[in-house]
Amino acid sequence: MASRILALIIKEFLALFRDKKSRLAVIVPPILQLLIFGYAATFDLEHAALAVFNEDTGAFSRELVGRFERSTGFEIVGYLRSEAEIGPLIDRQAALLALRIDEQCSANVTRGEGCPVQVLIDGRNSNTAMLALNSVRSIVTDFNEERAEIAGSKLPARLNMRAWFNPNLESRWFIVPGIIALLAMIVTLIVTALSVAREREAGTFDQLLVTPLRPWEILIGKAMPGLIVGVGEASLIILVAVYWFRVPLVGELATLYPALIIYVLSIIGVGLMISSFSTTLQQALLGAFLFIVPAVTLSGFSTPIANMPDFMQTLTYLNPMRYFLTIVRRVFLEGAGLEYFWHDLWPMTIIAAVTLTMATWLFRHRMY
Rank of each mutant, 00 (worst) to 15 (best):
A359G: 06
R62F: 11
Y323V: 03
I218A: 10
I261W: 07
G337E: 13
A41S: 07
F363S: 04
R137N: 13
M185G: 00
Q207A: 13
E217G: 07
I292D: 08
N307I: 05
L6P: 05
I150E: 15
V187D: 00
G73K: 10
N168W: 04
E339I: 11
A59V: 12
P177S: 09
T141W: 12
F17R: 03
E55R: 15
R137V: 09
G87V: 13
L64Q: 08
L89C: 11
F37Q: 05
N108G: 07
T297I: 14
F311N: 01
A41W: 05
R200V: 11
F245H: 11
L260F: 03
G152K: 14
Q282A: 14
Q283L: 15
W244L: 13
L208M: 15
G152N: 14
E217F: 09
S135M: 09
I31P: 00
F245Q: 10
K154I: 14
L155V: 08
L96Y: 00
A95G: 05
P304G: 03
M312K: 01
R124V: 13
Y263D: 03
L133K: 05
S126R: 08
S3W: 01
G271M: 06
L155F: 06
F174G: 05
Q118K: 15
T326S: 07
I101M: 03
L209I: 15
L285N: 08
G300A: 05
Y323C: 01
R4L: 10
L99K: 10
A288V: 07
P304Q: 08
P320W: 02
D122C: 09
L89A: 11
R67D: 01
I175K: 01
N127T: 13
E113C: 04
S106H: 03
R92D: 14
S276V: 10
F165Y: 14
F17E: 00
L96Q: 01
T188E: 15
Y317V: 01
I186K: 02
T188R: 14
A157V: 06
Y263C: 06
A193I: 00
E170V: 13
E113V: 03
G232H: 00
K222L: 11
E217S: 04
S153N: 14
K222I: 05
M1V: 05
R158H: 04
I121N: 07
G287M: 10
F332T: 02
K21Y: 11
F205M: 15
R172I: 11
G38K: 00
I36H: 00
Q104Y: 09
I121T: 12
R18C: 07
G78Y: 12
N125D: 15
N134Q: 00
S171C: 12
E83F: 14
G230Y: 09
A241S: 04
A336D: 13
V77P: 04
L50I: 13
R162G: 05
A284H: 10
P167T: 06
R214S: 10
T280S: 13
P29C: 12
S153I: 15
A197H: 10
T57C: 10
R124A: 15
G221F: 02
L16E: 02
T72Y: 10
L50T: 12
S278G: 14
V331C: 08
N125K: 04
F301W: 04
L182H: 01
L32T: 03
N168I: 02
E103H: 15
L16D: 05
I10N: 09
T42F: 06
E85Y: 13
F68V: 01
K154V: 15
G58I: 02
